[in-house]
Design a protein around this nucleic acid. Structure first.
Lengths: 269, 269
DNA sequence: CGGTCAATTGAGCTTGTTCAAGCTAAGTGG
DNA sequence: CCACTTAGCTTGAACAAGCTCAATTGACCG
């Protein structure tokens, strides 16, 4: 069966269609492209830091992380990848991968040579648009992460991250609602969360406990439960506009005018 | 006189030519485009947070900063712009500007409507390539900043930033060498540096003093002097590969193989 | 001369780190 | 079925990097 038709590819198609006007011609072109689909074990490398960027990798299923290991042995995760994300969109334009990418869970990754991606873009402008848009959103996420690491407390960072993942996962249908509360599978260990948030595992643990005690979130056996998304958003001062994924019912701003956005207010549900 | 022919535009042309193969046709197209050139006072807004991204802004001269102001009144600068940079490359692909941009010094900014930029790209693939490449590099810088904020000490962050600016300014010919030492004009106040580095102005002050005492840098009257660039690079664990700007004599890695890059070693001068 | 902006200094305090140990649940081999 | 291991989570106590608040200095400007 063609990789595009597997149920597993749904998240990617959703993201693609959400990023540009994709028609049958584009899908046919994608289906015809020489895509290689790989299965990757948890903790295994998807892209090695500093390697030549000859292929573009699509994360069809599972979670990935882009990271840097520092001289002192610590690690910082610069970005998380969820199903449907492009692991290294900028590889199309740069010669080398500036950071490594690993699988956080068992992953299914589709990859395609740069030349083939370029060929697709030359024939189908909307594919190029989609690619550019995904790259732009990845940049916005990176900017937002920088802001969080620079100016937010541990609790805010954690809440903000959980909100971001909420919106991203909701976009691909991986948020479930059960008796009012929302939730999703969060496959990261506390140590991995720490590497995303620029904290230590110990502190993530304590922060998580405090938030649990306050009833803001539950995290047990890789399941995250959010009793009141609006409350979590408030705790993380979260405004999801930067994700450009629409559907902000739970995390909406009060209005959409420039003035309103300046004082990004969060709506109570 | 056409904006493209002003001496002030040099940095932009250097960056442009460094990003793709730009010929006379492309330059002519740029010269013919309806570009609006503005002068902007220090501290004035170039782009307001949350506004519709209808124009692409080129920073011809002066320094700018992309920033977010948080609910608690603090500010985080997510990126610095130096002459030749595109302020908001991703605006071509997203509807709204996700953060504000201000002039840190008096600036000269050229701007162009999205539609005109798109038209240029449609006619001249190399202009599109250059744009994409600049966006990719901006992303790499953001990633690197995230790593710094998450896992580096104040001193390392500061040293790293000064190294990065060294490379970026050298690329546009704004680093001067005098009796062995290198230097450039750094127009930021300590408070602004703090907003870039995720620190307080007080702590930047003390960190700067310590580095001064160690003879790593001099910063006086907006002039930064670096007696020994390799030493500064070591202090900031800096590897400039992510800037994709070549010319790493002073900040080179030991080798260019994948293995070598993994343990990014810095060369002593 | 008063006013403003930036840099500087001091003292006390907080957030988050470090180090170390203990705990739980899920394998795994005998 | 049980000893043994391992990975992840939890806890405690001491510690430190960086923050806050507040005051001082110096330069420039009108």
């Amino acid at each position: 069966m063609n990789w595009l038709q597997r149920p597993m590819t749904m998240p990617f198609l959703v993201r693609l269609k959400g990023s540009a006007a994709i028609g049958v011609a584009e899908l046919a072109a994608l289906a015809a492209a020489p895509v290689e689909v790989r299965m990757i074990d948890a903790q295994a490398a998807i892209i090695v830091d500093g390697s030549r960027s000859v292929r573009i990798h699509l994360l069809l299923d599972g979670w990935s992380a882009r990271f840097k290991v520092l001289e002192n042995g610590t690690r910082q995760i610069a970005a998380l990848g969820v199903p449907g994300d492009v692991c290294n969109p900028e590889a199309l334009h740069l010669d080398r991968n500036d950071c490594g990418t690993i699988a956080l869970t068992r992953c299914t990754v589709a990859s395609l040579g740069r030349e083939h991606v370029r060929a697709l873009h030359d024939r189908h402008a909307s594919l190029r648009d989609a690619h550019a848009r995904m790259m732009a959103v990845a940049g916005a996420i990176a900017t937002q992460r920088t802001v969080c690491l620079g100016r937010r407390s541990a609790r805010e960072r954690l809440a903000h991250l959980l909100c971001e993942l909420f919106v991203r996962l909701r976009a691909i249908g991986q948020v479930v609602e059960r008796s009012g509360a929302s939730g999703y599978t969060l496959p990261l260990t506390q140590a991995e969360l720490a590497d995303v948030l620029g904290l230590t595992a110990v502190h993530v643990n304590r922060t998580l406990q405090a938030m649990r005690a306050d009833g803001i979130v539950q995290l047990k056996d890789r399941r995250l439960t959010i009793p009141d998304p609006a409350r979590l958003a408030r705790a993380g001062a979260f405004d999801g506009a930067y994700l450009h994924m629409g559907g902000d019912e739970a995390f909406a701003r009060t209005d959409t005018g420039a003035a309103g956005r300046a004082r990004a207010t969060l709506v109570a549900a």
